[in-house]
Each structure stands twice: as C-alpha cells, then as structure tokens.
Design a protein around this nucleic acid. Structure first.
Lengths: 207, 207
DNA sequence: GTCTATATTCTGATAGAC
DNA sequence: GTCTATCAGAATATAGAC
C-alpha cells in the first residue's frame, strides 16, 4: 500500500535515472548513449546507475519494454474496444499514433530499430489482448472483402498502408522539414490534417 | 587505364573490407559495429582496416556515401528523365525502390537512421540534378491540382504517401513476417504486387 | 543511498617484424 | 601488404568510505 503510493509519486533517484535514460535511449539508441551521459542528464552520480539497475543493458531493456508497451497500447485499445467499422478504427488509430508521435517523434525510429534488432525478441510477449483484437479486426477486414466493399488484397498490403501513412512522415521528418522547407509548426498542422485524411484515403484506395 | 581496370575486377583485400563493412554498417549502424567484427567478417587482420581506410569513421563515410548515392540514383533518374505523367513516374519510382529494397531490405533503415543522424549532414550535397528534377515533379504536381485532377494537398502529404507506401513494408518486414505468418517468398510476391498497386492507390486517394 | 576513486573490459589505432 | 603485439583512451562496472 505504502509501497504502491511511493511508486506513483516517485520523484526519486531511480525515477530520475529512468526518465533521463528513456529520453536519451529513445533519441539515440543503445550504443550511442554513454552511461556518463545518462548520469549527467539525470543529475546524479554514475555509480548510482549501476546501484539501481545493475547494468546499462538492463536499464535499456526496461526502457525498451516500456516504449513498446506504450506503442502497442493504442493499437490494443482501439482494435479491441471500439465498436466502430473498420474505417472508424483506422481513424482512431491515426489519431492515437499521430498524437503520440507528435509528442515524441523519435519513438517511431526507436520501435523500427527494435523490430530489426534480433537481440531483443519483442514479438515473444504473447499479449492475448492484442492478439485477440487483431483477430476481430481481421474478421472485419475479410467481411469487407466478401461483401464486395473492399478490393481483395493481402493483409500485408492493408497493414503496410495503414502504418506507412501514419508513421512515415515522422520517420522522414528531418528530410521533410529541410527539403520541403516546412517549419515545425506547419509540420504539426499537416500531421493533424492526416488524422482525418488517412481513413478517407484508405477507403478510397481500397475500393 | 590499368588502374581503372584493376578497380573494376578488384577482389582484393580492400574490396573485401569494404564489402564486409557495407554489410555490417547497413545492418547495424556505425556504433553497433566494431572494427574487429569487420575484420573477421572480411577474413582479414584488424590492422589492415586502418592500413587501407585510416579509420573506422572514414570507412563508414565511404559506405554511407555509396548507400545514399544508390538510394538517390533511382529518384534522380526517374524524376528527371522520364517523360511520363505523374502517376507513371510514381510507378517507375515504386519499381526502382522495391527492386532495390528486395535485394537489400536493410538499406531502408540505414537511410532513415542517416536522416536522423545529425553527425552526417546528408542534405548538404547540393545535387543539382536531383534538385532540378524535384522542381519539375513539383510543377507537374501543382498542375494536376490546378487542373482539378487532384485534391489540393500539401506536398508533405504527397511525399509521405509515396515514400510510406513504398518503403514501410520493408521497414516493418520482420514484424510482418512474424505477426502475419508470411514467408520470405510470399513477401517478395506481395512487394512485386505493390509496384502496380501503389500508383493506382495514389491516384485513387488523391482524386 | 550517495559519493570518490579505481578496477576491468572494450575498442580504435599504431609500431614494428616479416 | 600482411601479420602479431601492444598502446592509449574510452566506457562500463565495482569497492569502499561516508
């Protein structure tokens, strides 16, 4: 009880280290971040990092897990609980991820790198909720096709298109800003536009 | 003359190092790759790496440049030289990049990471050819909108959509294969399908 | 729990023999 | 050109005082 309360309002050293590590690891990846950097960013001594987390690797694993959970949470929530049709769900997905990535654009690259990193088997965690929600979404998808409302395409196409349209602008953001002479503020506005546009686009392209 | 011939048929130590470095750097990035690893992969001694390339950094810069050139070459060629309409160009782009990424799926992640890496200013090289070709493509794009053939959207939307649809499946490939139970062969087939589908999709969504 | 000082390992690079 | 041996510095991790 007291323990739980402590955790919630934790502004302790442990929390500070984790926060600093999260910021840096998400931004630059495992190898580019040095433990001294984390310590400085957290405003603590280097030795405390190992005192609380034993090793840099263990600290990273925790950050990795938390990032992935927050990245998946939206998908699980939307696909599972929303009663809407397939395009409504896509809109909810777009809203959730675009808002998340607006706050932390580096999260996209972090997750993509994690997907390619064989060291961490991030697909191991058999999250039943997410698995089930996907099944339901897949059913809706198949029904659309059977009813002749959607062109018969492979699920890989659908998923690639949804994820691609949502995530790619954030992955290519530095290029977009420089090459197309777009300001941060404009970029944010354009991303907000996409929340409405993406479901419309998906519907149009798969008709 | 003799020198040039030598370079073309080079299977020498220098070439072996470069090949090994290219493979590893493209796969894992600069920091994750250790010089000893490159030496082992190339089947040579560690000292030879510095003998031929002076430093790890210089070696990486060469690989980086070559990767970026091969990644841009397609864009420059297509946008510049092709006389087709905007959708024909998009199809040519899709064909070029999908074929390139089929051979080296890691290239996509490498370029994305390079885009985010402030250490290497990859936008500095003022390739006039590419710049000019973009201008022409931009004109075609604007004309489509003025003629009422295309919805009036920001260029960021268009570029995000084109790049997203082409590149995202390769970025998410490990996830796609595992989660959607797709084999390597199937994946390749699906990517080939996308060459024809992407221009059609873009046309449909932007009408 | 927190710090200073230090041990230990890793890593890029070089010297010098062949 | 290629190798072995080694250096110098960086980076992770720990010992031990407070």
């Amino acid at each position: 009880m007291a323990k739980q309360l402590k955790k919630i309002i934790d502004t302790s050293t442990e929390a500070k280290i984790k926060e600093a590590a999260k910021k840096l690891f998400t931004q630059k990846g495992f190898n580019a971040v040095k433990t001294r950097e984390i310590a400085t960013e957290a405003g603590i001594n280097l030795a405390l990092l190992n005192y609380y987390f034993r090793s840099k690797q263990k600290l990273f694993d925790i950050i990795m897990a938390e990032n992935l959970i927050s990245f998946r949470k939206g998908m699980s929530d939307v696909l599972n609980n929303e009663k809407g049709d397939i395009y409504k769900k896509i809109e909810k997905l777009a809203i959730y991820y675009i808002d998340t990535l607006k706050e932390n654009p580096n999260l996209a690259l972090f997750v993509i790198n994690a997907i390619h990193d064989n060291q961490h088997d991030i697909f191991n965690s058999t999250e039943d909720s997410l698995h089930q929600s996907r099944k339901h979404f897949a059913k809706q998808f198949l029904k659309e096709i059977q009813d002749g409302k959607m062109a018969p395409i492979h699920p890989v196409h659908l998923m690639s298109n949804i994820i691609g349209l949502i995530v790619m602008p954030f992955l290519a953001k530095p290029m977009m800003l420089k090459r197309l002479h777009v300001s941060e503020k404009e970029f944010t506005q354009i991303m907000d536009e996409r929340k409405k546009l993406i479901p419309i686009w998906i519907k149009a392209m798969l008709k």
